[in-house]
């Protein structure tokens, strides 16, 4: 009941967030939701399934370029988006294969290399991607009754996609797949001995996480109406990783909170003028030192501190004769 109330309050806050705000604030909110989707995908791959990926920005890039190219060619966004998502699903599936052989920091370097490769292709393949000048002028979706050309309308469109993506992910992590992803993260050898095909589920973790990156890219393209390689460089992947880690990897709401901290907090701190980035960096460092489980973990710790402990007197008793 308490959770439902909180969820309801959150939804109301999301609905009223752009009211009375200027174009820039609404743009920031759209950006938060868009990166929130990319972070949701990485949270599935990393947080739930335990597979490190430093390539999420490249999937945003693939999604953004596919959407840009198709919408510039006259395709409606609703037709371009599924293709962008499917392309990322397939590329993510392929990127998952190295994860079957290498783990940990070795896998991190494989994905890092992929992100760099994508950046180089986007920068050098002028004929397709526009090279360093990128692509611009992508139209925003027009659904007849809802034309998203204006910022508030685009916000509600982004919010609808964000909520749909969140509900879908909730369904995935609540299904037996979610338990399988956690099993893969926590003890892959044991999970395999219990019948889990760890290869398939690893590939699925990469593919679905990457598809979410593609969806974020499909929104990023009409949001900014300009895509260029620098937006999807390795640093951007680190930023998305930061969102997941700061929010609390492996917790459902972590990407939303993490994206808010990474995108919105620096803007909130702008009143400190030249110090805002230093304060922001300091806040992130303190959070990670004090609570490596991120914002959600911090919330859990505070709740545990102020709530009476559950009775667990028999915990050490074990098998009673």
């Amino acid at each position: 009941m308490k959770r439902l109330l909180l969820l309801g309050l959150g939804l109301v806050a999301l609905l009223v967030a752009p009211l009375g705000q200027g174009t820039y604030v609404t743009y920031l909110l759209c950006s938060w939701l868009t990166f929130g989707i990319a972070a949701m995908g990485l949270n599935l791959t990393l947080g739930y399934a335990g597979q490190i990926s430093l390539a999420q920005a490249s999937f945003m890039g693939i999604g953004a370029y596919v959407t840009a190219l198709l919408t510039l060619a006259g395709w409606p966004w609703l037709a371009a988006m599924p293709l962008a998502v499917a392309a990322c699903f397939l590329v993510g599936l392929a990127l998952g294969f190295p994860a079957l052989r290498v783990q940990g920091h070795f896998l991190a370097f494989v994905t890092l290399a992929f992100n760099t490769l994508f950046f180089l292709v986007a920068r050098n393949e002028d004929g397709l991607t526009g090279g360093p000048y990128g692509l611009s002028g992508m139209p925003r979706p027009d659904f007849g009754l809802l034309d998203t050309a204006q910022q508030p309308a685009f916000y509600y469109f982004t919010l609808a996609v964000f909520l749909a993506a969140a509900v879908l992910l909730w369904g995935i992590v609540r299904s037996p797949w979610g338990r399988a992803f956690k099993g893969l993260r926590e003890n892959p050898i044991r999970a395999e001995s219990l019948g889990l095909d760890t290869r398939r589920i690893t590939l699925m973790a990469f593919a679905i996480g990457s598809a979410y990156g593609g969806l974020a890219g499909a929104l990023f393209s009409p949001l900014v109406q300009y895509v260029e390689p620098g937006s999807f460089a390795f640093a951007q992947s680190l930023r998305i990783l930061l969102m997941v880690v700061v929010g609390g990897a492996g917790f459902f709401f972590a990407p939303m909170l993490g994206a808010a901290m990474v995108i919105l907090l620096p803007e909130v701190l702008r009143f400190t003028e030249g110090y805002y980035l230093m304060i922001y960096a300091g806040a992130v460092i303190v959070l990670m030192v004090v609570c490596p489980e991120g914002l959600i973990g911090l919330g859990g710790r505070l709740r545990d501190r102020f709530q009476a402990p559950r009775p667990r007197g028999d915990l050490q008793e074990g098998a009673r004769p």
């Binding site: 338990r179 956690k182 099993g183 926590e186 003890n187 050898i189 044991r190 999970a191 001995s193 492996g250």
Partner: peptide
């Protein structure tokens, strides 16, 4: 079963 502890600790 395994010689070492082999559960999923966070579940």
């Amino acid at each position: 079963t395994f010689q070492q502890l082999s559960v999923f600790p966070k579940m």
